[in-house]
Design a protein around this nucleic acid. Structure first.
Lengths: 234, 234
DNA sequence: CTTCTGATTTGATAATTATCAATTTTGAGA
DNA sequence: TCTCAAAATTGATAATTATCAAATCAGAAG
């Protein structure tokens, strides 16, 4: 494992407060793997044996129930995923699959729980992380229950634009069918939602999307501090 | 504050590991209030100043976006709510309102954060609680994204039945319009969902519901360990 | 550059869910 | 027990979303 990767890890808020000994404990039995796109890393229902960290690439977390499948979140570098399952020593509630070629660091769950039990600062960092993640899911649940498909798309586009420093031209980081599932709709529906948003200045060709009238979009979806995380700090 | 109430609190997993001093710190500035039904305790967007504990009664957590409103969870005694907002020192993402007359204990957020910073065992208990809650919301998000309305109702009824020791006769603990919103549908729709479930042995009159054919119901909604918390431990 | 598979779009239709309106029912309080 | 406002149901219709099928498009492999 390269020391730059360790540095990346060390810089995450989650790992900043740990002692060097604790950090070594966590990382000594860790291993790094490269995966091509479309590789399943985790199957929901399996016992949580590793805390995963995306160092590079893109991972989708999804769930299935009978025929249906839905993308729940997209994990970008550098961040961990399935911390809650690891720390509660439970099964995974989501499956994970690489969207593009990715470098994934895997920390043994037992080590994570050991350091968690021994180092109060790690426990506190985990609280901060879990608290934040909890709130993320609550926001997403509200997004799903309170907005229509087109509104969710509008809000998502505005969020992407915000993340890109207010850019009016975006490039979708993944396929539209993934976005559709993330937003809780079918690909056909997403296509029509884009058509609907044309009236609000949204034009798209392939993965390139232009937002010519962000105000109109905002008026449609009313981004809210209470739903859209990116609205904070404005 | 009655000492029995303190005992109730002390018995919650969240507070069990704390030192007596820490527990005193938490509870000295706490206060207990009785509220009639339909009183708003929290408005989303407000800063989280108290950790609330339902000692008696029933509280609904809900959120609004423009015209729409949706019930996100129902909090039963004895449990805390909005721990995540308190611990991250943030605004509430949900509003809270009593469904019936309730006794609510309010612990100052500052005390909670102080004891959290000082007592590793409390930090660890909070991790356990947040981890569990996080997983609850993930389950709910999956419930929403992967199931139809009628399926959600079926799964909910089976969950209630399970909680009542497998009883085939249930009494709804709150109004149907609340249940409708919790399940992510309109009251009209819930009414029709009940009609749909008649074919699966569900009969209801008022708040009384009978499940004559739980197997058929289960076949419809396929309760899953990965969505329905109550399926665990079977 | 071409080929070809899979993604996306479009069209037609069905299923699901929401809305609006009108009854009917229920349950709390007089 | 009676009254009455709110809750629940029912009916009619609209909006939203899903499904199926076909056509088009795009991007990776050769």
């Amino acid at each position: 494992m390269r020391s730059e990767d360790l540095d990346l890890l060390r810089e995450l808020p989650l790992f900043q407060g740990i002692s060097d000994a604790g950090f070594r404990e966590l990382t000594q039995a860790a291993f790094l793997q490269r995966f091509p796109a479309q590789v399943t890393l985790i199957n929901e229902g399996e016992h949580a044996d590793f805390l995963h960290v995306v160092l590079e690439g893109l991972v989708e977390m999804f769930a299935r129930d009978r025929q249906r499948e839905s993308v729940l979140t997209i994990v970008q570098p550098v961040s961990t995923f399935i911390l809650a399952a690891v720390i509660t020593d439970e099964i995974y509630l989501k499956s994970a699959r690489t969207l593009v070629a990715s470098r994934i660091l895997m920390l043994p769950a037992a080590s994570v729980r050991k350091v968690f039990a021994e180092e109060p600062s790690f426990a506190r960092a985990i609280v901060a992380e879990l608290g934040f993640r909890y709130r993320e899911v609550v926001r997403e649940l509200k997004n799903q229950k309170l907005r229509t498909g087109a509104e969710r798309l509008a809000a998502w586009l505005l969020g992407q634009s915000h993340a890109a420093g207010g850019a009016r031209e975006l490039t979708l980081p993944f396929e539209k069918r993934v976005l559709a599932s993330l937003l809780g709709m079918t690909p056909e529906n997403l296509s029509r939602a884009f058509a609907t948003l044309a009236a609000y200045g949204v034009t798209s060709s392939g993965k390139r999307v232009r937002l010519d009238d962000p105000d109109a979009l905002a008026n449609l979806s009313r981004p809210s501090h209470f739903i859209d995380e990116w609205k904070n700090g404005d």
